[in-house]
């Protein structure tokens, strides 16, 4: 009992200065840790959020393009916030540009330069683009690409007549001048020109050839879409063979970007 009382009362080893220093050190270490690790994590999350928001924005823009083309809506506008990078229109006359060539055995039917509506994320070093009606993403300084949203190419076998029809949509992004946007803005789009080609008996085999822009190569995404989703056969690389088709329909649309 006596020992206990002694322990409670004896404060000869307690120093206010050392206690203050201990607590102060803890606070400083805490601030240091947050600055060193917490802040970069927050920045990284912000960058990721910007990128994912832009992925969704691009799909919203693709939906607008779908309305303009498939549903014959004349004009669409969408307000969006472009964070961490720039949204740029590369129109169909921009050089170098990728191209789609559709040909049958009697020769090329049409060659098409799609143009691009492209988001370049400076902070995440990622590119998201709308090319020929598809939303595609790729890392800025590496090869490879992924299709986030597919275009609507399709083949239909009619159960009544047993005839196969293949429909290929070519959707070009056009503008009167090069435009770019960062921050909050409105994308205004208009359907400017449509072209409809129906070839009732093409000289099979019909092929589609994709020639990528070497500086902005989306060939992996197109390869995966065409060979996996459409089940067309690639031979030679970059050229895709349609299954035997009775009617080939090529619908070409020109989307005019009026402003960003």
């Amino acid at each position: 009992m006596r020992l206990c009382n002694n322990l409670e009362r004896d404060e000869r080893g307690v120093s206010e200065a050392i206690g203050f220093m201990l607590i102060f050190t803890l606070v400083i270490v805490g601030i240091g840790l947050v600055t060193l690790y917490g802040y970069p994590i927050l920045l990284q999350t912000q960058t990721n959020a910007d990128e994912r928001i832009m992925e969704k924005n691009m799909i919203v823009l693709q939906n607008d393009i779908k309305s303009l083309t498939y549903k014959s809506v004349p004009y669409k506008e969408t307000s969006l916030k472009v964070g961490g990078g720039f949204l740029t229109v590369y129109n169909t006359t921009f050089n170098p540009t990728p191209s789609f060539t559709i040909a049958d055995l009697s020769g090329p039917i049409t060659t098409f330069n799609p143009g691009q509506l492209q988001y370049e994320s400076v902070s995440a070093q990622q590119i998201i683009t709308i090319e020929n009606g598809a939303v595609i993403t790729r890392p800025m300084y590496e090869t490879g690409s992924v299709m986030l949203a597919e275009p609507r190419w399709f083949s239909d076998t009619d159960p009544i007549t047993s005839k196969t029809t293949s429909v290929i949509y070519l959707i070009g992004i056009n503008s009167t001048e090069m435009m770019s946007q960062a921050g909050v803005g409105t994308v205004r789009m208009q359907l400017s020109e449509t072209n409809y080609t129906e070839i009732s008996t093409p000289a099979n085999q019909v092929t589609v050839t994709y020639v990528p822009d070497p500086a902005n190569n989306f060939s992996v995404a197109w390869h995966n879409y065409i060979t996996n989703s459409l089940k067309w056969i690639e031979n030679p690389p970059g050229t895709y063979k349609l299954p035997t088709t009775d009617t080939l329909v090529i619908k070409r649309y020109d989307i005019m970007i009026k402003g960003l």
């Binding site: 606070v27 999350t45 959020a49 994912r52 928001i53």
Partner: peptide, 26 residues
């Protein structure tokens, strides 16, 4: 001091949560 720690750490995690939630809702 203890409350200072708790508040600052909870703010930090709240920041992460808010950052995650901005992508939802479109």
């Amino acid at each position: 001091v203890l409350m200072g720690f708790i508040v600052s750490f909870s703010l930090f995690f709240l920041g992460i949560v808010i950052n995650q939630s901005t992508v939802v809702g479109q």
